[in-house]
Amino acid sequence: MSIAVSESSPAKAFRSWPNMHLWLFLGPCIASLIAVFLVPIWQTLQMSLYSDTMGRNVAFVGLANYARIIGQDGFLQLLVTSIIYTLGNVFFVWFFGLGIALLLNDHFPGRALIRAIFIIPWATPYVAASLIFSLLFNFDIGVLNYLLSLATGGRFVIDFLNACPNALISLTGISIWKLLPLGIVMMLSALQSIPDSHYEAAKVDGASRLQTFWYVTLPGVRSTTVMLTLLMMIWCFGRSFTAIYLLTGGGPAGCSETIVLRSYLEMFQMFHPGSAAALGVGVLLISMLCAGLYYGMVNRRGSHAE
């Protein structure tokens, strides 16, 4: 490696100021995150402690909103639904993301086009995607049931969105479809970062395809896997909204209702800002706990390995 030394002399003064460097590098990021996230999060925390009306005379009520939402029927179901939805997304986005990235990492005719096709779900506006799925999944006139009934002579059709647990499965599937490109892109860039020399070495050692995958590929994408799964976990838990709202509204009878959807309904349909904020804070706390545990776990395992 050859590096042009001469250009860097002014920076020498910086080196004795490591803190200054730190602020220079991290400062803008921290400042913008405080402005756009921490301040609103703080205000939401406050909102969750004040009375549950949209009126102007709001009163401090302590934890009453929290008590209300936990005391509601079906709070446990809400939690379980959110967790199933999240785990489904985390696993399948990672699984298909890695699998498809591996396929796309090989050379084959038309690869560029196929790669671009896999980006489509990401670029499709969620609202339009939800509408299309509502047509495809329609019970009476949807094309999926039409083809199913053709294939089975009309004996078998699926109620994708109005039966339990079908609704939750369909919605998890739609979310996986939408998030898949992110998984593919991240895994693809992770695969690119595995040095060819590692594969060559495995070849020299006579490793089988499976062994190469296990001992070279998987460790090579490990940090991206941690990042992707953590991100999916946080997102699917905290943003499980658009498709659910548009397709089932959490139904039938709460079957596909997630905490975030309930939070939205409390805020915008029932005008209970306090309860909505309390649910939001609940999501924040649960996510923090899970992310902290997960991160601690993989980090410990990671440091043992090294």
Partner: peptide, 11 residues
């Protein structure tokens, strides 16, 4: 199934 099932007003 005497009414369109799973159809919203947009359908």
């Amino acid at each position: 199934n005497l009414v369109p099932k799973g159809a919203k007003f947009e359908v």
